[in-house]
Amino acid sequence: MKHLKLILSMALVALTTQLFAQTNKETTIKIIDEKDYTFVANSAIPMSNMDISQILSRMPGSQGGGVINLTGSQYDFRVTKDSVVAYLPYYGRSFSAPMNPNEGGIKFTSKDFSYKESKNKKGAYTIQINTKDVKRENFRLTLSVTENGYASLVASGYNKQPITFNGYLSESKKKDQ
Rank of each mutant, 00 (worst) to 15 (best):
V134I: 13
N24S: 14
K25F: 01
G64D: 11
I31Q: 06
V85A: 08
Y115C: 07
K119H: 02
I31R: 03
K121F: 13
A97C: 00
V67F: 04
F139N: 05
N148K: 14
V79S: 01
L70K: 06
R93T: 14
N166W: 04
R140E: 12
I52K: 02
Y168D: 01
E34Y: 12
L88P: 07
Q63G: 01
T164L: 14
V154Q: 14
N166K: 05
P101N: 06
V145D: 10
S73K: 14
Q128R: 09
K121I: 15
S73M: 10
N24Q: 08
A86H: 09
N148C: 05
N148P: 02
Q63K: 03
Y150V: 13
Y158H: 10
R140K: 15
L153I: 05
Y37G: 00
I55W: 03
S156T: 15
L153H: 05
G157N: 14
Y150M: 13
A124C: 02
T80N: 07
K135E: 14
E34D: 15
S156K: 15
N120K: 07
I127K: 10
A44I: 09
D36A: 11
D76A: 11
I127S: 05
I129M: 15
N166G: 08
N102Q: 15
T164F: 01
V79A: 02
N42F: 06
L56I: 13
M59A: 08
S73D: 13
D33V: 05
A151L: 07
T28C: 06
S152V: 09
Y158F: 14
G72C: 06
N49G: 11
P89I: 02
R58V: 00
I68Q: 13
D51E: 11
M47L: 11
N49Y: 05
S118W: 00
I163H: 02
I106R: 11
I55G: 00
T126K: 15
L56W: 01
T142S: 07
I31V: 15
I31E: 07
N69R: 09
I32C: 08
G105P: 07
L70G: 09
Y150T: 14
M99H: 04
A86F: 01
N166V: 12
T126G: 01
R58M: 10
N100W: 03
S144D: 11
T164P: 04
M47T: 15
S53Q: 13
Q63N: 01
I29C: 01
A97P: 00
N138S: 12
Y115G: 06
G72I: 04
V84G: 06
P60F: 08
Y115P: 09
Y90K: 08
T109L: 07
I129S: 09
K81P: 02
E147S: 15
L143M: 15
L153Y: 07
A124P: 00
F77N: 10
V79E: 03
Y115K: 09
R78L: 13
V67M: 12
L70H: 11
S110I: 06
S96K: 12
Q63Y: 00
M59F: 03
S118Q: 11
I129W: 03
P162T: 07
G66S: 04
N120H: 05
G167C: 08
S94H: 02
N138R: 06
